[in-house]
Amino acid sequence: MKSSKKERITILGLLNTVLLLLFVFLCVYPLYYIFINSISTATEVQRGVFLFPRKVTLMSYTNIKNIQGIYSSIFVSVARTVIGSLITCLFTSILAYLLTQREMPARKALYRFVIVTMYINAGFIPYYLLISNLGLKNSFLVYILPGSVSAYYLVLIKTYIESMPLELMESADIDGAGPIRKFVSLVIPLGKPILACIITFAAVWQWNSWSDNLFFIQGSKGRNLHTLQFLLYQNLQSNMSAAIRGTDSAAAAAAIKITPTTLRMAMTFITVLPILCVYPFMQRYFTSGIMLGAVKG
């Protein structure tokens, strides 16, 4: 940190910067492209809108704004994202930590028991029966509970914890601190980068999910539990079927796939934007070390 300003940039450093900026351009331009296309008319989009929007129209955005229940769905989506990602991170990291404890009975077997869940998938019908029998249909918990312990995140957290400096753990052991105390006073502060990572992963996943809504929230009972992504998905689908109104079975079976691309672009833009706004706050935790000048020279 202290010396960084004085250092001169090496050729390698310059190359590094240029390459990264080039890659970033490849990543940012598509979003810009999505934006300028989402505010251009469909005919112009077909002609190709590459640099600036043409024949600006906010139709796609008005369409989204007019979806019934869109504002309450934002609330539901934010709630499931915040609660869901925190719970997933908390539950998974506690279990991961417990599985690193040498005193944990059968810990290797238990670890494998959890890992295997990444590879087993029973299919839709048994899962539907399960959710239905648990009474999770038309309940907010259906967004939270099923993903609350994730094998994949567990592996990542456990790997991280195991690479943390052991001496600290052991010294805490000597103090006679219990596992919960150690989790709170050691794992949470030292594991901040990984926990921030997991929260980010889980939050993005929660924010983008809609199929649990589609299958498990239905009718009047679920009316106030719809998520933003689901309403957008549904709107997109009904726009497709509106496009094919008046077709016979031959057409209907196939034509359902007609896609109003500009609408999809507008939807993408408004769902990506919040992620990009919140992201830097989480990022603090997993890139802070870099900012401190982890690697000098």
Binding site: L21, V24, C27, L31, V204, N208, T268, P280, Q283, T287
Partner: peptide
């Protein structure tokens, strides 16, 4: 940080 943020955009599309 900006590079890292912006490079993750495609993941959300």
């Amino acid at each position: 940080r900006p590079i890292q943020t912006l490079a993750s955009i495609p993941n959300f599309i």
